[in-house]
């Protein structure tokens, strides 16, 4: 029986290696930067990893047109979901801002005091609120 055309071994290694390089880059960003820019970068790098997976591992690059459409359409509807939900959440007004914190009714979190200022080795990043 004749074999079907296949990709070389290098192809598989290259795909996996490029994803791992992108993961390493995200870890480097995490180690060196802080703040929203760092989050945007790490999630952006995740997006690039996803593009590699979708196009090369899942083979959407060479898939039939309609199968591509399904994938794109799913993302489009997810986009609608995000955008329209945010249209509400981001424009709701400042009801919660005057509160001690958002909707703080019965938080199960024990507040920090002077005697317990570290939690399993991680120093707290904020001043604790008044008990």
């Amino acid at each position: 029986m004749e074999s079907v055309k296949t990709q070389s071994l290098k192809y598989y290694f290259a795909v996996a290696a490029s994803i791992l390089v992108l993961v390493a880059a995200a870890l480097a960003v995490h180690a060196t930067m802080k703040g929203p820019v760092a989050s945007a970068l790490t999630l952006g790098l995740a997006g690039l990893q996803a593009v590699v997976v979708v196009l090369f591992s899942m083979g959407l690059r060479k898939e039939k047109g309609f199968n591509r459409l399904i994938f794109v359409a799913s993302l489009m509807f997810l986009g609608f979901f995000i955008i329209l939900t945010l249209a509400d959440v981001l424009t709701r007004g400042d009801v919660a801002k005057d509160e001690e914190f958002n909707f703080s009714i019965k938080s199960p979190v024990k507040p920090l005091t002077g005697s317990n200022h570290t939690i399993d080795g991680h120093p707290p990043r904020h001043e604790g609120r008044a008990p």
Binding site: F77, F80, F81, L84, A87, D88, V89, L90, T91, R92, G93
Partner: peptide, 22 residues
Amino acid sequence: SFLVWGHHMYVSGQSLYANMIF
């Protein structure tokens, strides 16, 4: 049909801008 769900929520506390869009 995917873009109109907010019309169930006009009086739920949803923002006025979202209400208008929906």
